[in-house]
Amino acid sequence: MFIKDYIKDVYGAVKSLLTGMRMTGYYFTHHKEIITEQYPDNRATLHLAERFRGEVVMSHDENNEHACTGCSACEIACPNGTIKIINKFDITPEGKKKKAIDTFVYHLELCTMCNLCVQACPTDAIKMAQNFEHSVYDRSKLTKKLNKDGSKLREGIE
């Protein structure tokens, strides 16, 4: 029936508009919901979103050991050539040669923080850090070496 549909239309419209207004009205009266970070002022207490991606780092434990086997999966996964892995061959106590990482080169200036390298890593050696204050005066400082000097592969990771 025409009149019935018409009234239903008007009722539905008013109801949905009021629902929207209730939402914004809730935000207007609840100032605790405000998510703005006043960045330079609150640097100490800055709260970043959990999944914010700032740069790629390699995690080292207290014995200066990392989990990178030098498999180059990240280098292959990287869409714009940000990562370059230089390998070396260690001599194990048994006298065998074993492939290990020499330098993990990371070009921050090329990185788009796409997270593909972290997903590609089979041993979870690299992860995304939340540091975002990357500005430096010299571009060459953006080319980083991720594995620390003298670090070695953790035991038991192949």
Binding site: T24, Y27, F28, H31, E33, I34, I35, T36, Q38
Partner: peptide
């Protein structure tokens, strides 16, 4: 101000 608070900004 109203716009900001309604959009959870400052």
């Amino acid at each position: 101000k109203v716009a900001a608070v309604m959009q959870i900004r400052l």
